[in-house]
Structures are given as structure tokens and as C-alpha cells.
């Protein structure tokens, strides 16, 4: 914990960078997992599942 505080949270400059970087990864993680859950629930019903038949 002390290492994280000293390297990231202590100075405003590194703190801002840490917030922006973690926001990016958090957003990607939430996006990717929610899409994966949605497509898992609806397997076979979505356009991406049936478009192979028409191309």
C-alpha cells in the first residue's frame, strides 16, 4: 500500500495520470465483459450469429 501511495497518489501529477489510466482500463473491462455476457445470454438470436447464412 505504501508503495502505491508513494509512487502514484502522493503527487497530483502522478495521481491524475493514475486516474486517467485506470479509467481507461476500467471502461474497457466493463465494456468487454458486459458485451460478452450479453452475447452469451443471447447466443443464436443476434444478427452476428445468423449473418453467416446470408453472406
Amino acid at each position: 500500500m505504501k508503495v502505491i501511495y508513494n509512487t502514484l497518489f502522493k503527487r497530483t501529477s502522478t495521481y491524475a495520470v493514475a486516474i486517467i489510466a485506470s479509467a481507461f482500463f476500467f471502461e474497457r473491462a466493463i465494456d468487454v465483459t458486459s458485451v460478452a455476457i450479453f452475447e452469451g445470454i443471447n447466443k443464436g438470436k443476434l444478427w452476428k450469429d445468423i449473418k453467416g447464412k446470408y453472406e
Partner: peptide
């Protein structure tokens, strides 16, 4: 709540 339309 989470069910998509059946596109077929």
C-alpha cells in the same frame, strides 16, 4: 430483462 430480439 437481458433477452435480445430473435433476429431470424
Amino acid at each position: 430483462l437481458f433477452d435480445a430480439l430473435d433476429h431470424q
